[in-house]
């Protein structure tokens, strides 16, 4: 089997105040997969995400990205390989124009001139925001800002795209547009979300994190239709939504 894009082994982390957020997490994501990371608030999802690109360092265990260990000496390359889109686009977009913001990541990697421009245009085209390149990000709608935030990371040509709550605060149309964009991308995706229908729609596979441990890993459809599992881990479907009524997608290859 090929080297996984994401290889997390026995990852544990305690914050400086003594609070332990992760207790030995194992997670493997292979090229081309779209995986949902589910779990109640405080399960450790964000802590896990911050380990993937070395913002936090492992207390125990290891994280490898396409075979490269997440360590201090590899940070620059790791951060190119792992693109994290944070929840609030206002945290991610800080420049005077959309173009500058999308150029920020690749420019930090040393891309310059026409190559940089091509990179920016490519990423903006992928999220359908090319015609807004010269606008200030804070004049865009929330949905547009979320898409630009995705582009700022796509411009770095990551091997895995990590999205923190991509559907939060979006109106249904923007939510669907983002889903169409994500489905169209040729990139591995790890998506942290509370939006279970969204997870089912986009991610054939899901991982449930609870109290700092992976408690379930399998086909999203199977997890969401397992009432006992759902109840145990504080996962609830929105009113009127029944995944069992939907056809089960084909088997997941892990």
């Amino acid at each position: 089997m090929s080297v996984p894009v994401l290889d997390v082994r026995g990852l544990a982390h305690a914050y400086p105040d003594g609070h332990q957020a992760l207790f030995g997490v194992d997670l493997h994501v292979h090229r081309g997969e779209r995986v949902a990371l589910l779990g109640p608030n405080g399960a450790g999802k964000t802590t896990l995400v911050l380990h993937l690109n070395g913002i936090l360092t492992a207390g125990a265990g290891s994280v490898h990205v396409s075979g490269m260990a997440v360590e201090k000496k590899n940070l620059k390359e790791v951060r190119r390989r792992v693109g994290v889109v944070f929840q609030d686009p206002d945290d991610q977009l800080f420049s005077a124009t959309v173009r500058d913001d999308v150029a920020f990541g690749p420019a930090n990697l040393g891309v310059r001139g026409p190559e940089l421009e091509a990179c920016v245009r490519g990423a903006l085209a992928q999220v359908g925001m090319l015609e807004h390149a010269d606008r200030p990000p804070h004049h865009l709608s929330f949905g547009q800002r979320r898409r630009v935030a995705v582009a700022t990371v796509l411009a770095m040509q990551p091997e895995i795209l990590v999205l923190d709550e991509p559907s939060s605060n979006l109106d249904p149309a923007s939510r669907r547009e983002l889903a169409d964009i994500l489905r169209g991308l040729d990139v591995t995706v790890l998506m942290v979300t509370h939006d279970l229908p969204y997870a089912l729609e986009l991610c054939p596979r899901a991982v449930v994190l609870h109290d700092g441990q992976v408690v379930a890993d399998g086909a999203t459809h199977d997890l969401l239709t397992d009432a006992e599992l759902m109840r145990r881990h504080r996962l609830e479907l929105p009113f009127g939504f029944d995944p069992a009524a939907l056809p089960r997608p084909g088997p997941v290859v892990t």
Binding site: I55, K76, D91, F104
Partner: peptide, 19 residues
């Protein structure tokens, strides 16, 4: 959080000069 998002995109203390 802004700083975090910048670091996640390879920020190392200098902003790339504006094209």
């Amino acid at each position: 959080r802004v700083h975090l998002a910048m670091v996640a995109r390879g920020y190392d203390g200098t902003l790339p000069t504006r094209e």
